[in-house]
Design a protein around this nucleic acid. Sequence first.
DNA 1: ATGCATCGCGCG
DNA 2: AAAGCGCGCGATGCAT
Length: 614
Amino acid sequence: MSIITLDKETYYSKEYSLSKMTTEEYIRDPRFQLIGFSYQIDDGKPTWITGSDKYMAEHLHSLELEKHTLIAQNSLFDASIMSWHYGIHPKFIIDTMSMAAPIQSITKGKSLDALARHFKLGVKGKEVVAAMGKRREDFTPEELARYGGYCDNDVALTYALFNTLREYSTPQEMYVIDMFLRLYTDPILVLNKPLLEQHLVNVVERKEALLAKVEAIVGKDGLMSNPKFAAVLQKLGVVPPTKISKSTGKETFAFAKTDAPMKELLAHPDDRVQAVVAARMGVKSTLEETRTRNFIAMAVRGTLPIALNYYGAHTGRASGAESMNLQNLPRGGTLRQAIEAPPGYKVIACDSSQIEARVVAWLAGQEDLLEAFRNKVDIYSSFASDVYGYEVNKSMTDQRFVGKTAILGLGFQMGWKRFAEQVKSMSGIVISEADAKRVVNLYRSKYYRISELWDAADTAMKIVVAGGTAEFGVGIKLIWASEGVHLPNGMIVRYPGLRYDAEYESFVYDDRYGKRNRIYAGKIIENVVQALARIIVFYQTCKIDKQLRKYDKPQSRFKIVLSVHDEAVTVAPAKAAEKVKEMMVKTMSQPPVWAPDLPVACEAEIGANYGECK
DNA sequence: ATGCATCGCGCG
DNA sequence: AAAGCGCGCGATGCAT
């Protein structure tokens, strides 16, 4: 098997370019045109190919990528063209841009230019021909040759970059990258266009009805802007509620729908106030409408390619992309329902249960909590029983919700104020200051090993700041050296520029974008736990993918079709759905080799569409 | 016009 | 001393 490094040059103009539209829109556009491409086999010299569409297509097919590995800088682009325009599906896809993502804070960006300069691999050529607005026919042979030289240089740099980045990645992570790219290059899920069109009508009508009720009071644009909305409230004799901003520490309006004073205004004696507040809440999120419009536009073009940044978060979690974040679709909504399996197939989704709560208990060595998870105890009810002093069961939703919020948040040093606030905003349950403090203290004393884990992380951080190397963790010992916390799969949670900051009166580090970021015990533990949970779920997801791919070729429907943090989604022929579900449950019930005593569990559902799998 | 910071809101 | 965390997108307001 060879490694083929490749780069394509394609037509673009002022309006038709990747800076004006998504990759999917650009590649599926009728204006799309391949101008030429360079490729290099293993350590060989780059070759530039240009000519008629037929000639280039034949040359691409002659590379037999089905048997080889493709490398590109931003393979999302090159591999999608390969798949959507030429029906070529490489055996394995490597993307140097994705490989660079975990070390972005070191390389200061992940463009080919930035990476080549950082690693001193050479210089990315400046564009040698004016290509803007020119189709292939418009170039002179001499211009095309110069274009080829530029493209050859990019290919050589990309291959050198791959060899450099190898030592920062692992085979397992490369599999994850390939799997994520294929969510996009070989899309399987289908959008239900009629359903989306009807939904758009409903959403627009609902919004118009809300606005019609209050237009006389607020005018055309008094709802979205905070200062304007404040003026509207004042006009109605209401003092606009305020709060302290979490990001700036300054006073700001408390106009979010989770802000308690806003909720109270929904029951204001003046009907006009009620209507205005309800309208603001109903209009503030534009997600439903904009996403529906984007889905419809995409449905016209084809199936749903899923764009996820592999390693988008500081902790390695994936993040959304392409104006189409598929990790935050409203639960129980039409958008999820509109994502369907192809005809004759079913969607199967499998969720890892309370993975972070389990990992923090395991990392801390909190044996009683681990034992409860092992025995499949309903841990939310169980902790709520301790809080209330009587037996809480699943039917006691309020008490259980308090237990759930405690189990999911208090392991990361959440305080009593935030706890009470969160419970109230999510469920309406009011907890007194004394009770909130009691719950927090109960958690910290009952699960004292978790509090001790925070202390251990705090100590470790101070040792590292003083120039040393430290370790923390009971379930597994994690080494914290200068660059960050080393994880059992070879990856690192990085804290560049870790130091004490007098102005912030706190320890800080510089995030990916160079911004100062506070860091403290509970947050370190949360970061590390999130990173470990991600490693576990991604490992399980890859294992599911590998088992499915055995049944067909790489471009087949037998593969992972979506991943959302603690969830893996596949499609399977209706007849095989139960079997595939069993395989997924079995796979996601197994802990990784480095945590054999970690009790993991999962839940799976089968449906005709993604919405039915919840 | 364009970039940047902030807020709100959707998810895990 | 104590502090739940991690994202992306759209809208707004302000600076350039």
